[in-house]
Simulated assay, not measured.
Amino acid sequence: MRRWSDLPEVARDVVGALFAFVGGTALYVTGLYFLHEPDTPVSIPVRLAIYLPLCLLTMGRRRMPLPAMAIGLVPLLVDIWIGPSVPVWLVYGDLIYAAVLYSGRRASRIVTVLWSVFSIFLVVLVLTLTVDLRSVSLAFIVVFAFIATPLWWANSVRTHKEIAGAERARAQALTLVAELDRRAAIADERTTMARDLHDVIAGHLSAIAIQSEAALGVLTRQEGDSPVTGIMRSIRSNSVSALQEMRTMIGLLRSGDADEVAAPRRLAQLSILVDAALAAGIAVQVTETLDDTELPSAVDQAAYRIIQEALTNAMKHAPGQEVAIEVGARDGKLALAVHNRLPAVELKHRDNGDPHRGLINMRERAAALGGHFTAGPESGRWAVHAELPLSTAGAS
């Protein structure tokens, strides 16, 4: 049944017409086709010549149900004239069924009314002309089997289809309402998060920027351009930059539309991280071999954040040590590497036992894109390696 329902409607109608013709031919050949035995016998080829056009009309029962039923009246009337036969009435009953089921609502009602009136008229006519109980019974059986049954069955199927369509529309409406409720709940949660970020973190960052600016002014007047002054400039620069990014995140949370706020940072802005590290007294060497490779947005942003976190860890745990950053594309992946030499007391695997939040964040960013991340000692240095697949969806 599943294979049958998977076939195109035209193919199913063609197969149905073929089976109808073969089955009707079998009834004609075996002589089991009489509704009423005619006074003058009719040859089988003549019967088949009348029956074949009716079978061909069934191939258009879905696409043009009303014309097929109307044209089918011609072979039906000819069959009645030479002596009614079961195959012709069976196939024409199917055309009545199709006309009620597949036509428009108004046309379906008109067909039902017309055939109902004709059925009553036919039974009354037979009763008036013959006054024979056997003939009236036969007319009633024909009307019930070949007219009333297709009308009732088609209207029943049509009603069930309309109910199913109404239920589908109702389910779609409920789904839409649920989606709108979900979006409203998300919007409320995003607004709450944005407010909390602004009240807590953004406030602290603003205080750091202001205080570092004040301290920078005092140091400049007292000591001039000293290493401490450079560090304070780096602190102020980083705090202002973090505050800008925090405001970007708050804007994203409030609006939900990334087009209305500044875009997140990407590898093209890697120089900002390098300048911040240089201001803090950290030498940074960058090797980039992307060769104009187009990076998906999600990969580009994640790579920037991983390098930022790795560079922050290097400045924190190995101050004054040179940091080497390598960025390249190979085998459909974006490869990142950040190396720095550690003091002897720091040469231990910091990613076991009590993992740092920064390492967890980097690993999660890589895993979210289907990439790979490792961090640990490597030949006397601390090495961070990440591979992000370039096939990750994230169009700019």
Rank of each mutant, 00 (worst) to 15 (best):
S5H: 11
F121I: 10
E213T: 14
A262C: 00
D199R: 15
R47Y: 12
T220L: 13
F121R: 04
D292V: 00
V157I: 13
S396Y: 07
L267R: 03
V142D: 06
L347T: 03
I272Y: 07
A154H: 07
T40N: 14
G165P: 02
L270K: 02
Y97I: 04
P84L: 12
Y102D: 03
T130M: 06
A393V: 08
L278F: 09
A11P: 00
T149Q: 12
P264E: 01
S43R: 09
P75S: 02
V177F: 07
R182K: 11
P296Q: 03
V240W: 08
I250M: 13
L151K: 05
R247C: 08
L197E: 10
G256D: 09
L52C: 12
R170F: 15
V74L: 14
S85I: 01
A164Q: 08
K316E: 12
P296C: 05
E294I: 09
S206W: 06
L18S: 07
Q211A: 10
A145K: 00
A314K: 05
P319S: 15
L334E: 04
V228R: 13
E364A: 14
E288W: 01
L176I: 03
P67W: 09
A70Y: 14
A276R: 03
V10H: 06
H198N: 15
R350V: 00
V299S: 00
P355A: 13
W382Y: 14
R2W: 02
S156T: 10
F373D: 02
I272G: 03
M315N: 14
G371V: 04
M64G: 07
T30Q: 09
V323F: 13
H160L: 15
